[in-house]
Design a protein around this nucleic acid. Sequence first.
DNA 1: ATTGTTGCAAACTATTTGCAAGGCG
DNA 2: CGCCTTGCAAATAGTTTGCAACAAT
Lengths: 141, 141
Amino acid sequence: MEICITSLLREKGFKVTPQRLAIYKMLAATKSHPNAEMIFNELQSMYPTMSLATVYKTMEILKEIGLVQVLNAGEDSFRYDADTSNHPHVRCIECGQVDDVQNIDSAAFVDQVAQGTKYHLIGQQFYFYGICPRCQTKELN
Amino acid sequence: MEICITSLLREKGFKVTPQRLAIYKMLAATKSHPNAEMIFNELQSMYPTMSLATVYKTMEILKEIGLVQVLNAGEDSFRYDADTSNHPHVRCIECGQVDDVQNIDSAAFVDQVAQGTKYHLIGQQFYFYGICPRCQTKELN
DNA sequence: ATTGTTGCAAACTATTTGCAAGGCG
DNA sequence: CGCCTTGCAAATAGTTTGCAACAAT
């Protein structure tokens, strides 16, 4: 995994820096789909000089070399996911957490859209909204 | 349709103003899924004192009373749609236009997700990306 | 008459950019 | 060593808010 990002950066002509490794490592280790500020906050203790701008610049590169995907779950900021497989996401409208939706077969649905539109389709994003298990139990108060 | 927005506003305790009618009428008459600035620009000739802030405030209300839905197709601004039925959208990565995807049956797909997640699902948004017919022909140059 | 709304300007937030100092190759 | 990257600060863009004048009920 570290090998992967290191060689990928070099291949594409980007330099390998501690900041880039740290950002990618942190993202790959979480399932929380953090936005830039969350990533920045989490890395600040380890890298006291880390800047938000570097997080943004790094995400731009990681997106470009295919190591992260950018999520736009209807919020005011972008979230990032080191799992670049094309899977749906679901956001809790109470607490705001974003989870993966696993083991979904969207092929039939995508095919249907591919046929129904005259676009040359390249990708897609599926976002669901609802109340997460934890917030459901909270609401029993 | 005008009757609808007028009575709906009154029912919910909002006042009926020319600006609100104009904004909704314009949105209901287009398929272009405009963002706030596009709406503002188009209305400025007819309503020279119209302000962007009023567009935003109005969209907030129209969303609240269920007359518009807000789209977040991976851009830096929100788009608005007076068609509140839950249909997918497709955006051209060349020219940026956003189109509806019509006649799609997503029930099976949604059911699959509803069962696969422990969320209490409330809604969803499907976004596709690709190259629109017009840009496909342009690319032949 | 009362209360909500408009529209300007200022505030705010997320993101991007310019640039000098520093680090990777 | 040369060039890319960092990180600060300033700039930008979309959206929201405060408030005084105004309009709908």
